[in-house]
Design a protein around this nucleic acid. Sequence first.
DNA 1: AGTGTATCCTGCAGGC
DNA 2: TGCCTGCAGGATACAC
Length: 278
Amino acid sequence: MPELPEAETIARGLNAVLPGRVVRDVEVLRADVVNGPARAFAGAVAGRAVREVGRRGKNVVLALDDSTRMVVNLGMTGRIMTGSGDGADPRSTHPAVVFRLEDGGRVTYDDVRRFGLLTAVPATEWRRWSGRLGPEPLARSFTAARMRRILAPSRSPVRSLLLDQRKIAGVGNIYAVEALWFARIHPLAPARDIGATAAAGLHRALRRVLRNAIRAGGTTLRNYRDADGNEGRFGRVLRAYGREGEPCTRCRTPIERIVFGGRPAFRCPRCQDGSGPR
DNA sequence: AGTGTATCCTGCAGGC
DNA sequence: TGCCTGCAGGATACAC
């Protein structure tokens, strides 16, 4: 899916238009995208005003006026569209949940593959819910030293650690692969072998990639759109992800695709040959 | 502890 | 044109 930059872009778009508006009713068209019974979910959200829309990891988080949080994990193909009127948004090909607002507005959750999940988290559960996720990589408190402490105890490939939401929140396959390219680290490098210098480089690369992607409105490979229906522009500047066979922009060596952990990774065989920065 | 595999689901691209 | 296979921004559960 949508990784951190896409969730951030969506959250900002929603936060510009939703705060103060009240959900009149919730229509669950596809019960499998809702966590728990659809009736309970709808009951927790209906009648509530939206206080603020934010993000935690890859999740778009709508804080409601009773401090319930509606957490939207977009899975691979989740989209959120705003508009007005009854029924689902006309742009929605696979509407899953429709929120009608008191003022005639409407928010549609659309999800082709339905890997997404909408959860109403009660105020009392929020800390526990948020606590399952690792630190926010763009937070001031996420330092190079913290990155190193996360990597140091693990023998897993560094890419696997970057994707582990319990270790660091919000990093998905695209940005993990991109950050490793910038840092010149082999995706399969054992995390514990990454020393202070390399960890600092990866820390800087990861934050740079995430920030630039947010600036570009995220990456659209296929389905992703922001809350206004726009595609992300970061796909144009990817250096490694999806570029198998194309020349590395640093050294012209063809980018290589490898698969581990059930997912593709991409690297420059020359820049990221495993003998990189330690 | 870490890794591979399967599962959820649909659409699309590529090969024949 | 049509059929089949493989693949995909994610998360989780399981066996080894």
